[in-house]
Design a protein around this nucleic acid. Structure first.
Lengths: 202, 202, 202, 202
DNA sequence: CATGAATGAGCCTTCATTCAT
DNA sequence: AATGAATGAAGGCTCATTCAT
């Protein structure tokens, strides 16, 4: 643990700035946010932001990446820990909903990426897409082996994976926008049920 | 038919500008787009844009509203024309996918509304939400009577409606971004199947 | 009386436009006024204004000149008709006040010329100055002969002329801005009295 | 004395900008002036102006207010220091003329306020009017007590105050526009004499 | 003659980024 | 490292003027 002084300060500042940026970007979006605003929220001067991030884009990227990776890690971990398909699907839905329950601010940023790929910049969009696909593939794999093991009916694993992903995302949106009054548990239960049985069911 | 000359010209310009604006907004997003860019795309001078639309916001609103209403009308019409739940769900998915197949550009604009409520402005966001809810309610009603008639199993109609909506939207995204290689027919079939039977199926 | 048709129409339009322009310039000032506004006030289209006046400047010039000349003529005539200095001074004050009583709108335009010589343009400013000096000289001449004839005490005629002019203009301003509640007669009486006797009086 | 560094720089810039703005507004008037022009005159970039003044209006307001208050203070002080009416009137005329002798540029701005109330904005116009009336009232009070004490003849103090004010303003204009070749002393002497004795005199 | 659609120069203002202190 | 003053490019919008109909 070498250059503690410098590194600690840097880490501290980085964290402060990241938090401030997250709040500001969440509230105003990429274009609506200003570096000045982020600096103010972090309690530092404008120039200081540029000591830690080279540009507005990069700062946004850091915020975005941090949130995405945490979400990604949590989801991956939980899903892989589950043993069978049913548990995996349930874990997927639960983890996502729970994550955003804890990170409301990141939600706006997350959703901005689905809409305005432009603001984000091509590099970031690629990263985002990569994580997206990775998650989809994880689901896909789970489904594929679920099909093999007879845990579910025979259907296209890739398409089903997308479907589960989208369904979860939609539910996320409703919850975060306050369009659902039901509790987290109940929402998860419904989503899983829908995914599992569709609307025809048994 | 009255002041044909003037009215025709106005309609023509309005249309040209709308098309140009749609293309530019689709490519760059609301903030990234410039009036100059729209004007150039329409082959007119900057000032001309302001003869037909009072502001950038208003122009965006016109583009957005036009696309939304067409989509809304098409969907509503087809769904209501269908007789039973199965047909209605199928119609819903089909119409949406088909609409964006024809209106690729509008897709980006449509999706921007899901992400950056800010840029769009509160008035437009409200309109958007209203249409959204109207569609969800239409699905909800269909499901409710489907449940009554035993066309599907007993589940919460509101949540199921949201689920169908979100699933469709997700599929839309994949198709438009070119993430699916399967044909329209097949995608619709899968989506319907998924909605209908879930992944457990019979 | 030749090209009656054309000339009559031209005169009519010219008059209409002049009146509209006077109203608009009076309300908004040179910079604040728009050709569109003048056209609307005159009940014609924008382009029509340019058929009769080459530019905004020229239109303003026409309005200005018309008002100035009428004022100048009225004043000159009345003053020269008066026989002795007392009558001349009285005529000067009375005519000016009476003129603006009738032409409230022109008042704003008249006063703009004292402040923003810039907007008016150098050519017009020169014309304005010429009329100004002419009036001052008229007063000067009157005073000079008044001095000779012993109608008043011996003082510098040029400076006295300016003083009378300025005093009148000030009174004008107060009346038009509604800062004086006294009647026209009384104001004239006071002004003349002040000019004649100063504040020390006999 | 506290944050000298920053405060000194700010004061310096504020002063520089104020001076530049005064020059530019004086030459071109409010509408004719551009922020770019002011910046250039101050030797800074356009954006810098906005670090010190929020808008063109505010900058104009600062220039205007500064000049008006200085003039107002000087006048008030000198007039109140004078003991009798004669001295007060003399002080009034002298101070005004002397002030503008020193502040030629401000003259154009001062006079613009008499003409184009519009450009200035309602708030500033109100301030201007308040100062105007205050000065008139000061004169009025002086005259009233002068009348009581028999220092001058009996006349309406309000109207006389206006007259003195206007006469002075007129003289100001002539001097600043270079329409008088006589010296300051002589002009003041004449003005006072005119005010005191009128043209009939003793 | 009259019209008003079209033009494009011009201006205020914002804000990401730099740099001297 | 931290600051925040300075920069200047960029963009929305207005409006005098032109010109085809």
């Amino acid at each position: 643990m070498g250059k503690t002084k410098r590194e600690v300060v840097t880490e501290f500042r980085t964290g402060e700035l990241l938090a401030a940026a997250r709040a500001v970007f969440a509230e105003k979006g990429f274009d609506g946010a200003t570096i000045e605003g982020v600096a103010a929220a972090a309690g530092v001067a404008k120039g200081t932001v540029y000591l830690y991030y080279r540009s507005k884009q990069e700062l946004y990227g850091a915020v975005f990446r941090e949130g995405m990776l945490a979400l990604h890690r949590a989801t991956t971990e939980r899903v892989q820990a589950a043993s069978d398909l049913e548990a995996k699907v349930r874990a997927f839905v639960t983890t996502k909903l729970a994550y955003f329950e804890e990170h409301r601010e990141f939600f706006r940023i997350y959703f901005e990426a689905f809409g305005s790929a432009r603001a984000v910049g091509p590099g970031l969009q690629a990263e985002f897409d990569a994580l997206y696909r990775e998650q989809v593939q994880m689901l896909e794999t789970a489904i594929r082996s679920g099909v093999k093991r007879g845990e579910c009916r025979k259907l296209r694993p890739d398409a089903a994976a997308f479907a589960i992903f989208d369904l979860t995302r939609g539910l996320l949106r409703q919850r975060t926008l306050g369009w659902t009054r039901t509790g987290l548990e109940e929402d998860v239960a419904f989503a899983f049920d829908f995914i599992w049985k569709g609307i025809a069911g048994r």
